[in-house]
Amino acid sequence: MMNNIIKNMRINRLVRINLVGFYTIIRREIKRVVRIWIQTILPPAITMTLYFIIFGSLIGSRIGDMSGVPYTTFIAPGLIMMSIITNSFGNVVSSFFSGKLHRHLEEMLVSPMEITTIVFGFVSGGLFRGILVSLVVTIVALFFTELKITYPLITVSTIILTSVTFSLAGLLNAIFAKNFDEISIIPTFVLAPLTYLGGVFFSISLLSPFWQSVAQFNPILYMVNAFRYGMLGISDIPILKAYTIIILALVFLFSLVIFLLKRGTGVRN
């Protein structure tokens, strides 16, 4: 009896630590994004404005329609997705890595918070920036084209799933990174090519059958198409397949990140 009461008190203590801890990390991460908005929010707004001017207005008007919609309209969901991917990834990779490099990550590692709480906290930061940037880029897009939201639930859920997946990918990169070079290698050599080939600028039906089947291995393809389906109602990929793949990628990355951090990879001796 007494033992049970003591046990419950302990559990409450640990639950409280993780709840308050989670809130503390989210708050800290959001403040960070807002404080350095010149690095976090402004760049995607500028890049996307340039994309819309060049690919949308200048070149797009000569391309005509793609998948039955004007080219500018076609690329808008892809560009929003692209900003979500780079910004969610970039947010977590730089926040976690700088904590590792300057050692203040230790504050959290020595605390009684669960690893899962720490991961949720960082991912929430990435999600916050992903959503914020998607709103900013959508506003930019509205200056160049009309956008509608055909399936709101699909639109919102793909934003969240994609942002979480790439926040986890950023965390994975930060876990292994030993210096600043190693946090720019992945975005440049993996993320950028996958994004450009992931159907942001074209429908993969334009590709030869061989390259179409190669493209199926690119997870970003599914995210871009699911999102485009949510907004415009068009997709190269069956929507259920897209969701399955996105969720598998998310679960895989989450399990891998938790496994590595529990083992201490990159953060403990």
Partner: peptide
Amino acid sequence: NILINQAGYYGIT
């Protein structure tokens, strides 16, 4: 902020 955050990691509101 360093102290307030640290307290948060230990469950102090």
